[in-house]
């Protein structure tokens, strides 16, 4: 078998982001998605979803965290071409699409001023969201563990822990 017999990835790609489907041509053109594009790049530069931040761009800081099929993943180390079948949720997808109401977690971050510069915040919220989906009433240590891949250099960490725990309590967790 040679590479010509095995076909490269399909020439089109459909992404499911925040419940909406987006189709792209694969290629190197200005509006196309290249096989070498990461999900973070596509979200930001093709879909204008700049709430997903890039800091380290190599998997070490969590700023680019999004949900993929409900789990927290790092969009800077995922190839967009490999995300076709997945449900992606970004920070922009947390608000209620009908009412525009914030997710309780977002509201709790506001109430606790759980940020300083705010650059790390979308990634932290997405990691926390993944945790609460899986474990609606985490302990403080479980929150620390779930956020252990998220960098916050301003050290808003303490307020973040308060915000996540409070959101969990409000959400029905103990």
């Amino acid at each position: 078998m040679t590479p010509t017999q095995i076909k490269p990835s399909l020439p089109t790609l459909t992404l499911n982001v925040n419940g909406k489907l987006h189709s792209f041509m694969l290629g190197e053109g200005l509006h196309e998605v290249s096989p070498s594009h990461t999900l973070a790049y596509t979200l930001r530069e093709r879909l204008g979803l700049t709430g997903t931040k890039i800091s380290c761009d190599e998997g070490a800081c969590g700023c680019c965290t999004v949900l993929m099929d409900g789990k927290a993943v790092l969009s800077c180390i995922l190839l967009t071409v490999e995300c076709g079948e997945k449900e992606i949720v970004t920070i922009e997808g947390l608000e209620d699409p009908e009412t525009g109401e914030l997710d309780p977690l977002q509201q709790s971050f506001i109430d606790h001023t759980a940020f300083q510069c705010g650059f790390c915040t979308p990634g932290i919220i997405m990691s926390a969201k993944a945790l609460l989906v899986e474990n609606p009433s985490p302990t403080r240590d479980e929150v620390k563990e779930a956020l252990s891949g998220n960098f916050c250099r301003c050290i808003s960490n303490y307020h973040v822990l308060d915000a996540v725990i409070a959101a969990a309590r409000k959400g029905g967790g103990e």
Binding site: M1, P3, P35, E82
Partner: peptide, 23 residues
Amino acid sequence: MKNFAHYNARSVAEATHLLAAYE
């Protein structure tokens, strides 16, 4: 990132043959 060709392998045989073909 610099470009590359991209394949979604559907079987181990496909993956290993691609590896062989690309030497």
